[in-house]
């Protein structure tokens, strides 16, 4: 196997190890920072959950980036080849990749296969969902709600969602419109508009990519924690303009409609209970702007600077740890 191939496999193996270890820690952190607390806006909690969910991907990419840095700089002729200095331990190097431990290369091969499969399946789901959404919108009537395009589609009782990373819009079903009172429907659409203002579809797309670096269960838990807080944030925003009761009534009415088409399957309605309780029992709902995406730009930038500054140290630390394991 060529040194380059072994090096790529070693990097994939490293990403799998770091992402796998960082994932559960990130979920624990996300649980803590996204938990309701007096005076802490749901929007802030959603931001914190989002940033926590990025940790496995950023950690994996940071470590791989740092490990890669000396090799890349050497290949570019910017620094001298330092490989003679570490014959004493494992060597992760673009030029001498063959010295990478076999188990790491094997783990990397498995990780690459898993990454590719999960990414492919996710992409297929995104394409399938986008195609179905476009087809559904073609059946509907175009409207505008809270400054965003909305489409009222026939049938489909369960639908009311915000979508579009670039072309932000709302899709909701005529059945929902028939089932909800005017004030409830207006509150429901204000909730969806809040998702679009917060750019939650983009956040979910980013989480979807970042989730590839963590265990599937970890990615699911992180996403659920973000969504739970984001839903409350949108409820609070809609409550400012439409009143908490109208939003709470809209949630219950939408859930009731869903129940009527789902054959009454039972499952905990913990999230719904929490959302309705937060709306009607909290004195003065706390609303804050979403800043998660802004911070999400800062984090990778800071990581890039750190990798550039401390790449050599990360590289040697990784090699030392691998030597100890090997």
């Amino acid at each position: 196997m060529s040194p380059e191939s072994t090096f790529v496999l070693a990097c994939a193996g490293l990403a799998a190890i770091v992402g796998g270890v960082a994932g559960p820690l990130a979920v624990r952190l996300a649980r803590r920072v996204s938990a309701p607390a007096p005076g802490r806006a749901a929007s802030t909690r959603a931001d914190a959950a989002f940033l926590s969910a990025l940790i496995p991907a950023l950690a994996a990419l940071g470590v791989v980036g740092g490990t890669l840095m000396p090799s890349v700089l050497t290949a570019a002729g910017l620094v001298a080849d330092h490989c003679d200095d570490h014959g004493h331990h494992v060597h992760v190097c673009l030029a001498h990749g063959a010295t990478t431990p076999g188990w790491l290369a094997a783990l990397g091969a498995v990780a690459l296969a898993v990454y590719a499969t999960r990414a492919g399946l996710r992409l297929a789901d995104v394409i399938r969902g986008a195609r179905a959404t476009r087809a559904l919108e073609r059946l509907g009537v175009r409207e505008t709600h809270a400054g965003f395009p909305a489409t009222r589609v026939p049938g489909a009782p369960r639908l009311c969602f915000a979508t579009g990373v670039f072309r932000r819009r709302i899709v909701y079903s005529a059945a929902l419109a028939d089932h909800l009172s005017a004030s409830e429907l207006s509150a429901a659409l204000a909730h969806e508009a809040a998702h679009l203002r917060r750019r939650d579809p983009l956040v979910l797309a980013i989480l979807s990519v970042a989730g590839l670096f963590a265990w599937p269960s970890v990615a699911r838990a992180s996403r659920a924690l973000f969504l739970a807080a984001a839903e409350e944030a949108c409820d609070a925003e809609a409550a400012v303009t439409h009143g908490p009761e109208a939003v709470a009534r809209a949630l219950v009415a939408a859930a009731r409609l869903q129940l009527s088409v789902a054959n009454g399957l039972s499952l905990t309605g913990r999230t719904l209970t929490a959302r309705v309780s937060a709306l009607v029992t909290t004195d003065g709902l706390c609303v804050a702007p979403a800043r998660g995406l802004v911070h999400a730009w800062v984090l990778p930038s800071a990581l890039g600077v750190a990798v550039a500054l401390f790449g050599a140290e990360v590289h040697h630390a990784v090699e030392t740890v691998l030597s100890l394991i090997d």
Binding site: V126, C160, A162, T163, L204, S208
Partner: peptide, 9 residues
């Protein structure tokens, strides 16, 4: 798998 910003889960 990817989540949806929907009114009710």
């Amino acid at each position: 798998a990817t989540g949806l910003a929907a009114l009710v889960d």
